[in-house]
Design a protein around this nucleic acid. Structure first.
Lengths: 253, 253
DNA sequence: TCTACACCTTTACGCCACGTGAAGGTCAAT
DNA sequence: ATTGACCTTCACGTGGCGTAAAGGTGTAGA
C-alpha cells in the first residue's frame, strides 16, 4: 500500500507539515519521490512513523528518537516492551494525578485536609520521593479501592440538596463528637450517637453499607494523617476516639 | 507558609525560570516582593500554581489558562470536576495506546495481524471514528480483562527458551490444524489433538487454565477479525473450525 | 479544451514555553 | 572577610511545528 503525504497524515493523525519536517530532519524519509516530486510513503514508512509516535508519546525529543530508531542495535521487539513499561508508568502517574484532583475536591469540601506538598503529587515526572508518591496507592492497597473510590465517586455526582444535607450532617457529627470526646467513653450514648450519625453521613457517599467497610474506614481515619488532621483539628485524639466508637458500634472484633 | 522561588519550584516540581516566566506573563505573581527584591509566594499562590499545572496537564496553552483562572466566573470547584473528567478521558486514551502497543507486540510475534489503520489507534486525540477506537475496549468488555491481559502480560515476561517453545508449538498447531481441517470433523482425533496442543500452547501464556476461558478465547478467534485473519490466512474457515474443536474439547455447552 | 479545484512543492517567517548563560546583588555560615 | 548558595534582570537560543506565499500537478466536469 502506498500513501501520499496527506493520506499518511490522515491515517496517523499528523499534519503534512509535520511529515515534511520529519523528512527535513531525516527522521522519516518517503520511500520514493514520484515524477512530479511528490512524496510517496510505503509500508516500512508507516511502521516507522508508528514507532516515532510511540516515542513521542513518551515526550522524547525528535533527535533522540532518531538516534534510537536509526541505531543498528535497535530492536523493535525490545523497544516495544520498553514502551509498554513506560506507558504503564505513565498511567500510574496519571492515576496519582487523578487521585490528587479527587483529594483536592475533598479538601475543598472540608472532608480532608491537604498539605501544600501533597497538592503537587502526581505532577512530578521523576521518581524522586518515591515513598511520598506511593502514598495514595498504599492507602488504596490497604483499604481497597472500594473505600477510596466509592466515597470519591458518589460525591462527584451529588446534587446541591444532597450536598447541603451532607454538610449539615457533618457539622452535627462534629458537635456530638466533641461532646462525646469530653466524656472519654467511646461506648457511651453520645459517642454511639456520633457513630450512628457518621453512618448516616456515610450513606450519602456510599452505595452499600457494610459494618466491615465502616470499621475499616474508621481505622483509616487514624492511619491516614490527612483524615486525622481533619478530625483532630479541635481536639487531638478525636480521630482515634471516633474509630473506637465506630468499632464498638459495628461490633468490630 | 511562605516560599522563596526555589522552594516553591521544588515543591511543585517546576523550574525557577518557569516561575519567573509566569510572573512575567502575569499568570502567577508572587504574593509580595521583599526588601531585597526577592519573590515571596504564599498559600494562595500555591493553590493557583496547582490550578495552572492541572490545566497544563491537559495541554492548554498558558494564555488560555490565564483567561480561565482570571475570569470572575471561574469556579475552582467546578473546574476540578471537569479536570477529573478530562483526566479520566486521558487515561482511557492511554489505555488504548497501551492496548495498541500490546497488539503490535502480538502482531510482531505472529499471534494476530494488524491493518495500517489500526497501527495508529490511540494516537488520535479526537473522538472521530469512535467505533473504531472502542474496538479494543469492546473486546475487553466482552471477554473480560482476564483473557486479554493474561495472554499479553505473561508473554511480555517470557524468556527466550520459553518463547522458542511457544513458537514451535504454534507451528505444530498450525500443521495439525491444517490436517484436521481437511477431515472437516471438529470432533475427530486430529482436531482434538489440535485443541489439546492449543491448550498446551496457551499454558505458556496463561497462569491458570479454565475450560470456560479457553472456550471464550476460541470464540474470540472468530469474533475478532484480527485473530481470524491469522488463523484463516491459509484456509478460510480454520478459525471457526478451531473454535468448534475447542468447544468440543472443553465440553462447552 | 478550458476551467475549477484539490492536491502537491519549496521558502520563509512566527510562536510558545521555556533553557541557558552572563553579570551582578544578598544572606548565612565559617 | 570569604565562600557558596541563593536571588535579581537582561537577553539570546531552541524545538516542533503553524501558517502564509508563490507556484506546479492531476483530474473531473462544462
Amino acid at each position: 500500500m502506498e500513501y501520499t503525504i496527506q493520506k499518511l497524515g490522515q491515517l496517523a493523525g499528523v499534519s503534512t507539515r509535520t511529515l515534511r519536517y520529519y523528512d527535513e530532519i531525516d527522521i522519516l524519509k518517503p520511500a520514493r519521490i514520484n515524477s512530479s516530486g511528490y512524496r510517496i510513503y510505503g509500508k516500512a514508512e508507516v511502521d516507522r512513523l508508528q514507532q516515532i509516535l510511540f516515542y513521542k508519546e513518551l515526550d522524547l525529543p525528535l533527535h533522540q528518537i532518531k538516534e534510537i530508531i536509526t541505531s543498528q542495535s535497535f530492536s523493535p521487539a525490545e523497544a516495544l516492551r520498553e514502551h509498554r513499561e513506560k506507558l504503564l508508568n505513565k498511567r500510574e502517574q496519571l492515576d496519582r494525578l487523578i487521585l490528587n484532583v479527587e483529594q483536592t475536591i475533598a479538601a475543598n469540601e472540608g472532608r480532608i485536609t491537604m498539605k501544600d506538598k501533597e497538592k503537587f503529587e502526581g505532577f512530578k515526572k521523576q521518581m524522586v520521593e518515591e515513598n511520598e508518591q506511593k502514598f495514595g496507592k498504599e492507602i488504596r492497597d490497604k483499604y481497597g479501592d472500594q473505600v477510596v473510590d466509592q466515597s470519591n465517586k458518589k460525591v462527584l455526582n451529588m446534587t446541591q440538596s444532597e450536598h447541603d444535607k451532607a454538610t449539615q450532617l457533618a457539622e452535627k457529627i462534629h458537635t456530638v463528637l466533641a461532646e462525646a470526646f469530653k466524656t472519654g467513653d467511646p461506648a457511651g450514648d453520645s459517642a454511639q450517637e456520633a457513630a450512628e450519625l457518621h453512618k448516616e453521613w456515610l450513606m450519602l457517599y456510599w452505595h452499600e453499607y457494610s459494618k466491615e467497610a465502616h470499621a475499616n474506614l474508621a481505622q483509616m481515619y487514624v492511619d491516614d494523617e490527612r483524615f486525622t488532621a481533619y478530625y483532630d483539628k479541635d481536639q487531638p485524639g478525636t480521630a482515634a476516639f471516633l474509630r473506637d466508637a465506630i468499632h464498638i458500634y459495628t461490633d468490630y472484633k
